[in-house]
Amino acid sequence: MTGLALVTASMIVTTSVASASESAAGPAQPNIVSAAVYALSHPTASPPGANDFSCKPTAAHPRPVVLSNGTGANAYDDWAGLSGVLKRDGYCVFAPNLGGPEGGLFQAVGDIPTTAGQFGQYVDKVLAATGAAKVDIVGHSQGGMLPRYYLKYLGGASKVGTLVGLAPSNHGTNLDGLVDAVRSLPGGGDFADGVIGAVCPACVQQEVGSTLLAGLNDGGDTVPGVNYTVVATRTDEVVTPYTSAYLSGPTVTNHRLQDYCMIDGTEHINITYDHIAIQLVRNALDPAHAWTPNCLT
């Protein structure tokens, strides 16, 4: 494992600029598994309907939507369901690959502040191409937390209307106690910070109590002028406890999937394909046409 870790770390380190590469759109997918299988041979595929830089926003949907994927995922396998839905709704949709090797299958593994800076550059590119004044952001896991760094530290607050997080790692994770267990072992802290931190800096930065998260959440979870929506699931096995996804503040709306369908068993990695989560995203982006989802619709 150490040798593999060092090789992977070398691949990441030698990529001085995180990838924003995207190619032709792939097909819509029903779940993260089928999307990941397609992404194996098409790692830079755009999600359906995304990354058309000739798209011009309409009066009904004046803000383009930028999708931000989770740790180790890429734009296609996280968003091959939601992206096409938003495109059909009339949005201009964009989904970059950032924080990983250029053209690589695994993205969003690099240093979060660095990736957040590149995310901000991508937002500027979208604004310039579309002529819009602001974007809305929908992010999964790290992709729901990382834009908060952009908002707080990198001038993003004036460029974003709404941030929607699907199972975001806003207050970190202990991976059901695994993080504490590893760090309690002899040499466990060195392993986590050295080996894991070299391969995936973002993984260590998302641990509960990390320096990055302590700074990000210091002084409050939100910044003025931005609306926040969080969608969490009680069965989240990655962001634990699942309530660590929630934000607090006057412009925050927190949702739990099981409050709309008690038997919904959707876990962390497939939440971007859950029909309730998708509708809650649509509601957050277009509150005037919101409706309440349930187990069937």
Rank of each mutant, 00 (worst) to 15 (best):
T2D: 14
G3I: 11
A5S: 12
L6D: 12
V7W: 10
A9T: 02
S10D: 12
M11P: 01
M11S: 09
I12C: 11
S16F: 14
A20W: 05
E22A: 15
E22H: 15
A24N: 13
A28V: 15
I32F: 09
V37N: 01
Y38M: 02
A39G: 12
H42I: 10
P43R: 00
A45T: 08
S46T: 08
P47K: 10
P48H: 06
D52Q: 05
F53K: 05
S54L: 06
C55H: 11
K56E: 02
P57R: 08
A59S: 15
P62F: 00
R63H: 15
V65N: 09
V65S: 10
S68M: 12
S68H: 07
T71Q: 11
L82R: 07
L82H: 03
L82W: 03
G84Y: 11
V85H: 12
K87F: 04
G90K: 12
G90P: 13
V93M: 10
V93L: 03
V93W: 06
F94I: 07
P96T: 10
N97S: 12
L98Y: 07
G100N: 12
P101M: 13
E102H: 13
V109E: 11
G110Y: 11
G110S: 14
D111F: 08
T114P: 01
G117C: 00
G117E: 05
Q118P: 06
Q118W: 10
F119P: 09
D124K: 09
K125V: 02
A128M: 00
A128S: 14
A132T: 07
K134Y: 07
K134Q: 14
I137K: 04
V138Q: 03
G139D: 01
H140I: 12
S141V: 08
Q142S: 08
G143L: 05
G155C: 02
K159P: 00
V160N: 00
G165N: 03
G165A: 11
L166P: 08
P168E: 14
S169L: 11
S169W: 10
G172Y: 05
G172C: 00
G172T: 06
N174K: 04
L178M: 14
G187V: 09
G189D: 10
D190L: 11
F191T: 01
A192F: 00
G197R: 00
G197D: 01
V199I: 09
A202W: 08
V204I: 15
V204R: 05
Q205R: 03
V208L: 13
G209S: 04
A214W: 00
G215S: 13
L216T: 05
N217C: 00
G220P: 09
P224S: 15
N227I: 05
V231D: 02
V231Q: 04
A232N: 06
R234L: 14
R234H: 14
R234P: 00
D236Q: 03
E237S: 14
V238Y: 04
V239D: 07
Y242F: 15
Y242R: 01
T243Y: 01
T243F: 03
S244E: 09
P250N: 14
H255R: 05
L257Q: 03
Q258L: 08
D259S: 13
Y260E: 02
M262H: 13
M262S: 14
I263K: 06
T266G: 05
T272W: 04
T272I: 06
I276N: 03
I276V: 13
I278K: 15
Q279L: 01
Q279R: 15
N283Q: 08
D286M: 00
P287M: 04
T292V: 15
P293Y: 00
N294R: 10
C295P: 07
T297F: 15
